[in-house]
Simulated scan of single mutants.
Amino acid sequence: MQLSQELARLFSLLWRITNDQRRGATLARLEYLILARLYRDGAMRAGDLAHGEGLDPSTLSRRIAALAERELVLRVTDPDDRRAQQLQLTDAGREQFLAEQRRRVALVTDAVAHWPASDRAKLAHLLHDLNDSLQKKAA
């Protein structure tokens, strides 16, 4: 069992189950990412969001338009530059994001619920260390 193979398998499975509408997915991956970033960091320009997440601005623009049409995000005047606009999460967007986040977390926590508590704690510790290492590489 190689780490790289298992990580690739994990990413593939997480992608499949979290985006499966039969399992209750209400947001596509990119929509979830946009709402998560706005929830975490607050209002921001679309260009800053695209740059920060490594997204293509034209793809992002289409998704933002769809989210705005569903009233999950608003375009508001940038207080620092009245010529520009920022994206802001609406109350409905916040609720939709949090519901989707709970659903996604439940998919994973349910999958390990039968594990001994000590194994779940080890996994959480190792994932924390992995995230810290990846965060340093991303910086």
Rank of each mutant, 00 (worst) to 15 (best):
Asp56Asn: 15
Gln5Ala: 11
Arg63Phe: 04
Ala92Asp: 11
Ala121Ser: 11
Ser4Gln: 12
Arg23Cys: 02
Gly42Gln: 07
Arg104Glu: 07
Gly47Asp: 06
Arg23Ser: 05
Gly24Ile: 03
Ile64Val: 15
Thr59Ile: 02
Val105Pro: 03
Glu53Met: 09
Thr90Glu: 07
Leu87Gln: 05
Thr77Lys: 13
Glu53Ile: 00
Ala66Lys: 15
Leu98Met: 13
Ser118Trp: 03
Val112Arg: 11
Leu127Ile: 05
Ala117Phe: 04
Phe11Pro: 00
Arg62Met: 04
Leu33His: 06
Met44Asp: 02
Arg63Asn: 11
Arg120Thr: 10
Asp80Phe: 02
Thr109Tyr: 06
Arg29Asp: 13
Gly54Leu: 04
Leu55Ala: 10
Leu10Tyr: 14
Leu10Asp: 07
Ala36Cys: 03
Asp80His: 12
Glu31Trp: 06
Arg103Thr: 04
Ala36Phe: 14
Glu6Val: 09
Thr59Ser: 10
Pro116Ile: 00
Pro79Gly: 09
Arg70Phe: 01
Arg16His: 13
Glu6Ser: 13
Gly47Lys: 05
Asp132Val: 08
Leu10Ala: 15
Ala138Cys: 01
Val73Glu: 04
Gln5Arg: 12
Arg62Pro: 00
Asp20Cys: 02
Leu35Ser: 11
Ala84Pro: 01
Asp56Trp: 02
Pro79Ala: 07
Leu13Cys: 03
Leu49Gly: 07
Leu107Asp: 09
Leu107Ser: 08
Leu10Gly: 04
Ala50Cys: 01
Leu30Asp: 12
Asp41Thr: 05
Ala117Gly: 04
Ala99Pro: 03
Leu74Asn: 15
Ala113Pro: 01
Gln101Asp: 13
Pro116Ala: 14
Thr90Met: 06
Leu10Phe: 14
Thr90Lys: 08
Arg104Trp: 08
Leu89Cys: 05
Leu49Tyr: 06
Ala66Ser: 15
Leu60Ser: 09
Gly93Val: 05
Glu95Ile: 10
Ala84Leu: 12
Gln21Arg: 15
Met44Cys: 09
Leu13His: 12
Ile34Gly: 03
Lys136Thr: 13
Glu69Leu: 01
Leu89Thr: 02
Leu126Thr: 02
Ala92Ser: 12
Glu6Arg: 15
Ile17Ser: 06
Gln135Leu: 14
Met1His: 12
Gln86Pro: 00
Leu134Gln: 10
Asp80Trp: 02
Gly54Cys: 03
Leu134Trp: 13
Ala25Asn: 06
Met44Arg: 04
Asp119Trp: 07
Arg82His: 13
Val105Glu: 15
Arg23Met: 14
His125Leu: 05
Arg16Glu: 14
Trp115Thr: 08
Asp56His: 12
